[in-house]
Each structure stands twice: as structure tokens, then as C-alpha cells.
Amino acid sequence: MKKVYTAIDDFKKQGLDMEIPLKLLMFTGLRNHSLSLLKVGDINWIEEIIVYNAGIDNSKHKVQFLPIPPGLMAALKRYIEENNLKFNDNLCYGIKGIPLQNKQLNRITDKICWDIVNQRTFNFI
């Protein structure tokens, strides 16, 4: 986990803010597709949870209530304010500033894992 946090910091030094998608991936266990569907309005600030509802009503897809650590809640609040995000805006954005898509997050996580295994510095650009 420490190496992932290091990667997040290294991305920031390169002008890439991947903190929110990567930390949400770690702390919620949501898959790429689910993360790409999250909206700002899915955050319950009072309960400090994210309410994920895929909008599909069957036995396989249930509404999920995901507790968020206080540090990540503070980071989410700061991120939303800095980017002037509104209730219906996507919560996670990719490298190019467009809403996160499955393949983008796969590429980022593959790069982090490759750099960790090969003990390289995290240089995405």
C-alpha cells in the first residue's frame, strides 16, 4: 500500500491527479466499471459512505453502502471543491481530464504494478 501511495505522489509531481480513483479502488473494492459510474451525488457526507446503485434490480446487483475513511472523505471534499464538481458529475476522471473509463484505470494500475515489481520510479508520462 505504501508503494501505491508513493505512486500517487509521483503522479501528482507529473501533473496527474489520480488520487481519488486509486484510493477509491483500494478502499471500496469496486471494480473499474463501477468506479466509472460513480457520481458526486453518490456520496453521503453525513454517514461518510458511498452509496453505489448500479440501477439494475435483480439478485446479483444490490445497492452497496461503502464506508469511506475520514482522510479519504476530506480528500474527496477538497477534490470536488477544487474541480467545481456538481451533484450529477462523474466522481472519477482519468489522465486526460475526461470521465474515467475501464481501460484507463487498467492502464494506470498495470503501470503501477509493473513499476513496483521492477522497482522503478513511477513515471507515467
Score class of each variant (00 low, 15 high):
79 Y>K: 06
57 D>R: 10
102 N>Q: 05
75 A>T: 05
3 K>N: 13
21 P>Y: 06
10 D>A: 12
95 I>W: 05
59 S>W: 09
117 V>Y: 03
42 D>G: 08
56 I>C: 04
123 N>A: 14
73 M>V: 14
41 G>C: 09
59 S>R: 13
102 N>L: 04
65 F>I: 14
7 A>F: 03
45 W>S: 11
57 D>K: 10
70 P>F: 03
51 V>L: 11
42 D>T: 10
49 I>S: 02
3 K>I: 14
82 E>P: 00
5 Y>N: 15
9 D>V: 11
9 D>A: 13
55 G>A: 06
35 L>D: 01
86 K>P: 01
45 W>L: 14
91 L>M: 08
103 K>V: 11
117 V>L: 10
66 L>T: 07
67 P>Q: 11
11 F>G: 06
92 C>I: 14
9 D>E: 14
51 V>A: 02
99 P>N: 00
18 M>E: 08
116 I>T: 10
83 N>P: 03
112 I>F: 00
58 N>A: 12
115 D>T: 05
62 K>R: 15
85 L>Q: 05
38 L>I: 05
118 N>E: 11
97 G>C: 01
83 N>V: 08
31 R>S: 10
20 I>F: 03
27 F>D: 05
92 C>K: 06
120 R>Y: 01
70 P>S: 10
43 I>R: 01
25 L>E: 00
103 K>D: 09
81 E>P: 04
5 Y>D: 15
114 W>I: 10
1 M>D: 12
59 S>D: 14
88 N>R: 07
17 D>G: 09
101 Q>R: 11
113 C>R: 12
1 M>L: 12
48 E>T: 11
92 C>M: 11
54 A>L: 04
50 I>K: 03
38 L>P: 00
3 K>P: 04
104 Q>A: 15
99 P>R: 01
100 L>Q: 04
106 N>T: 09
74 A>I: 09
40 V>Q: 05
90 N>F: 09
61 H>F: 10
97 G>T: 02
16 L>I: 15
92 C>N: 10
6 T>R: 14
16 L>W: 07
26 M>Y: 12
33 H>G: 12
46 I>N: 15
34 S>V: 05
22 L>N: 06
118 N>Q: 11
30 L>V: 14
91 L>D: 01
102 N>K: 06
113 C>M: 13
86 K>F: 02
100 L>K: 02
125 I>W: 08
13 K>D: 09
22 L>W: 04
62 K>I: 13
26 M>C: 13
17 D>T: 10
6 T>M: 11
91 L>C: 06
51 V>I: 15
28 T>H: 00
110 D>S: 13
47 E>T: 11
20 I>V: 15
89 D>S: 06
40 V>F: 09
76 L>R: 05
65 F>C: 07
36 S>R: 09
76 L>W: 02
35 L>G: 04
66 L>E: 08
120 R>I: 03
13 K>W: 00
1 M>V: 15
37 L>S: 07
90 N>L: 02
122 F>Y: 15
82 E>M: 04
118 N>R: 11
28 T>A: 04
80 I>G: 07
59 S>F: 08
96 K>R: 13
88 N>E: 13
42 D>V: 13
39 K>I: 02
94 G>I: 05
78 R>Y: 07
77 K>Q: 14
20 I>R: 03
106 N>A: 06
107 R>H: 05
43 I>F: 04
24 L>T: 01
21 P>E: 07
33 H>P: 01
87 F>E: 15
13 K>C: 04
